[in-house]
C-alpha cells in the first residue's frame, strides 16, 4: 500500500484523540497530509520515496503531541491556580508529613518503619494536594468558576524584618552551653548533680544507667566541646556570612551528638528480674523514640536553614 505509512501515522494519532472527534480530525489530517504529499510529488516530478514520506510525517510532529494540541485542557493545574497550589504544597506538606510520621511512629512503636515510610507519606500527601487542586482546576475550566474577590485592605500588616541573633543572645547561649558541658564533665564525680535530692528516689529502683554511657561519654563530651568552641568563635566574628556558616556548623554538631546518642541504643538496664526487664525495655524504646524525633526535627531544620541560606545568598548576589 503506497501510503500505508500515513495510515499508520493517523492510526497512532487517533489513539490519543477522544472517540467523539476522532474520525473528523483524522479525515482532515489525512486530506491535509495527502495534499502536501501531492504537492511534493508535483515538485519532484515523481512519487515520493518512503524516506521522503517519513520525513514529511516527522516534520508534522509526534502523534501524541499532535493529538494533544486538539485537546482543550493541556495542563493539570493552570497558571491562575498554580501559585495557590505551590503555596499549599510548601506550607501544608511539611507539617502534615511530620504529624503523619510521628503518629505512625507512635502507633506502630517503630521509628525505623516510620522513617522508611516517610518517602511514601510525602508522595501520598503531595498527590492528595495535587489531585484536590487538579479537581478545582477542572471545575474552574468547565464551570467558569472565579476566584473570590479580594480587597487589598485585607492584606496582613507589614512584618518586621527578622532580626539577627543579638550578641547578648549569643553570649547567653555560649554561657549556657559551657555550663552544660561543665555539668556533664562533673556529673560522674558528683552524682547529686544528676537528680539532686531526687537521686534518693532511684535507690531501690530495679534500673541503672546502661554501660554504653561509659563508651559514648567522652565522645559526646568532645562533640559538645567542639560545638561550644564554635559558639565562642561566633562571638568574635562580625560578618553575617560567617555567622551563617558557623550557625550551620553548630547545628551540624548538634545533629552528630544526637546521632551518637541514638547509636547507644540502651540508656537504662534492668538490675532486677522479670517486670524490671520489661520496664527497662519500654523506657529505652521511648527515650530512643524521643531522640529519633529530635533528630528528624533537627535535620529538617538544618536542611531548611541551608536552603534559606542558599536562597538569601542568591537574592543578595542577584
Amino acid at each position: 500500500m503506497e501510503f500505508e505509512l500515513i495510515e499508520r501515522y493517523l492510526q497512532a494519532v487517533g489513539q490519543y484523540l477522544p472517540a467523539k472527534r476522532r474520525e473528523d480530525v483524522l479525515a482532515e489530517l489525512r486530506a491535509n497530509l495527502m495534499a502536501r504529499v501531492e504537492d511534493s510529488e508535483q515538485e519532484h516530478g515523481r512519487p515520493l520515496t518512503q524516506m521522503e514520506l517519513a520525513e514529511i510525517l516527522r516534520e508534522h510532529g509526534r502523534p501524541a503531541v499532535v493529538a494533544a494540541r486538539y485537546q482543550a485542557q493541556q495542563h493539570l493545574i493552570g497558571p491562575a491556580i498554580f501559585p495557590f497550589y505551590w503555596l499549599a504544597v510548601r506550607k501544608a506538606l511539611p507539617p502534615i508529613v511530620l504529624v503523619v510520621a510521628i503518629s505512625q511512629a507512635l502507633l506502630a512503636r517503630d521509628v525505623g518503619a516510620a522513617l522508611h515510610g516517610l518517602p511514601l507519606t510525602i508522595l501520598v500527601v503531595w498527590a492528595g494536594i495535587t489531585l484536590a487542586f487538579a479537581a478545582f482546576e477542572a471545575s474552574w475550566t468547565r464551570f467558569g468558576s472565579r476566584l473570590p474577590e479580594w480587597d487589598p485592605r485585607d492584606l496582613p500588616a507589614l512584618q518586621r524584618q527578622p532580626q539577627r541573633q543579638s550578641r547578648a543572645n549569643r553570649i547567653a547561649d555560649a554561657v549556657v552551653s559551657a555550663l552544660f558541658v561543665a555539668w556533664l564533665i562533673e556529673a560522674p564525680n558528683q552524682p547529686w548533680l544528676i537528680l539532686g535530692p531526687g537521686a534518693a528516689l532511684l535507690h531501690g529502683q530495679p534500673l541503672a544507667l546502661a554501660p554504653e554511657w561509659r563508651l559514648f561519654y567522652w565522645q559526646i563530651v568532645a562533640l559538645l566541646l567542639c560545638r561550644l568552641g564554635l559558639k565562642v568563635v561566633t562571638l568574635f566574628t562580625a560578618t553575617r556570612a560567617w555567622h551563617r556558616v558557623l550557625d550551620l556548623a553548630i547545628q551540624g554538631f548538634g545533629i552528630i551528638v544526637l546521632a551518637t546518642v541514638i547509636g547507644m541504643r540502651h540508656y537504662f538496664i534492668a538490675t532486677g528480674p522479670g517486670q524490671s526487664l520489661l520496664s527497662a525495655y519500654a523506657l529505652n524504646r521511648w527515650i530512643s523514640l524521643g531522640f529519633h524525633i529530635a533528630l528528624a526535627i533537627s535535620f529538617a531544620s538544618l536542611v531548611w536553614n541551608l536552603w534559606k541560606g542558599r536562597r538569601d545568598g542568591g537574592a543578595v548576589s542577584a
Binding site: 486530506a31 516534520e59 508534522h60 486538539y70
Partner: peptide
C-alpha cells in the same frame, strides 16, 4: 482555504507555521 493551502498562503506571506499548531488552531 483548507488547512494545507492556508499554511502555504501564510508561508508565502512570510509567516511559516507548523502544521501541528495551525490545524488545531483552526478547530
Amino acid at each position: 482555504h483548507y488547512g494545507y493551502t492556508l499554511r502555504k498562503a501564510l508561508a508565502e506571506s512570510g509567516l511559516a507555521i507548523e502544521e501541528s499548531t495551525l490545524y488545531p488552531l483552526l478547530r
